[in-house]
Design a protein around this nucleic acid. Structure first.
Lengths: 206, 206
DNA sequence: CTGTGTGAAGGCTTTCACAGCC
DNA sequence: GGCTGTGAAAGCCTTCACACAG
């Protein structure tokens, strides 16, 4: 029935709509039109409507969509769970910042453990999050059945660490190291390559 | 003649090829085949060849591409300059980490100044980079003719700061705040939304 | 025989145009 | 009149198949 996979790019946008909606919800508005929400999310109204049809039809013509209902539908579609545990590997500059970044928690992700090759260099100053030794990584992932990892290690060891993660049963990796990771099918990787994003921008400036 | 704009997604890949090539260059290899480079970059050989035709044809059939020549061609195509000054706005968790992140420098970008609403909270400990007051932002950008900015401020003030940046003549913004920025045409924005990247991954895990 | 260059085909996304419902 | 839902069209990007060069 619902064999209908939703388009890859639509998944991103559904997350975006969800977050945009949350802000509207605080305004006690009962309904939104596609035009209004689309503007707030920075997409075209038709795009938004098309995306919404992937999660079912529930708008009222002439009126718009129920904010409440859309929240439920979206959160179901993108597989939100109230708490999804995540581990963080690599506590250098970027890793430490990510550990303290509150944007993850706001969207329901909790970083429950952090690992680094050098446990001494990073003392307890990192808030409540103790830095663990890499030697305990695989066991931790396996025992706690962790599915998601954020990878912020130097490029030189990225593949090696990835192999361990995959071995231990990790299913998804958010990769901040400027490396193309080799992973088996059914392990998903999202790359966030900061330098390339900047470089890409520089292409457009005259 | 060369009216041929290169496809948006190809621009990202060209950056990726460039970086992948740099690593090969250290191995003193004079030429690469599309198969070899494509594997290292995580794309299909035909994709790579197609992308390369956008920057001109310079391969030798039966042999491959000159590493040296490809470096030149790619760097010209993506508009690399040896040093592109960038400013950073917002020195919270993420901002501070970005200020110290060495990945930007490696790709030829130098963060020449950092701004924050709270100059006291962030002392000189941030390495050589002094934190400046927001009040001086517009003048700095204008005087130094800065074209690119990294924005790592809270969502609540993101649009406001953006307006100032645009006013002062900024042409490109790498935006880390979870906000859809409104900018005039000819100002380019790349959004890096960490929470959405994670959320997107969570969709794929069963 | 190896490996590039490329038109053509195919697939995926976005946009349009308009029918349908409140 | 206002706004959703959606097939059809258009646009963009990737992949294929194969001609062609060293």
């Amino acid at each position: 029935m619902v064999k209908q996979e939703l388009p890859r790019k639509a998944i991103y946008r559904l997350s975006l709509y969800y977050r945009t909606l949350q802000r509207l919800r605080q305004n006690e508005v009962p309904t939104v039109s596609s035009a209004t929400l689309a503007k707030a999310a920075g997409v075209k109204p038709t795009q938004l409507r098309k995306d919404l049809t992937y999660v079912g039809q529930f708008g009222t013509r002439g009126l718009g969509y129920s904010v409440e209902e859309m929240c439920v539908k979206l959160s179901a579609a993108i597989g939100r769970t109230s708490f999804q545990p995540v581990i963080l590997v690599g506590m250098g500059n970027l890793g430490s910042a990510l550990a303290r970044y509150d944007g993850f928690a706001k969207e329901g992700f909790e970083i429950i453990a952090a690992f680094d090759a050098d446990t001494i260099r990073r003392p307890a100053a990192e808030g409540a999050l103790r830095v663990r030794a890499m030697s305990g990584l695989k066991e931790f992932v396996r025992k706690q059945s962790i599915k998601m990892a954020i990878l912020a290690v130097p490029a030189t060891v990225a593949q090696e660490v990835t192999n361990d993660l995959v071995d231990a049963g990790i299913q998804a990796i958010l990769n901040f190291s400027p490396t193309v990771l080799q992973v088996p099918p059914l392990v998903f990787v999202n790359n966030v390559d900061l330098a390339i994003e900047l470089e890409n921008l520089s292409y457009f400036i005259r």
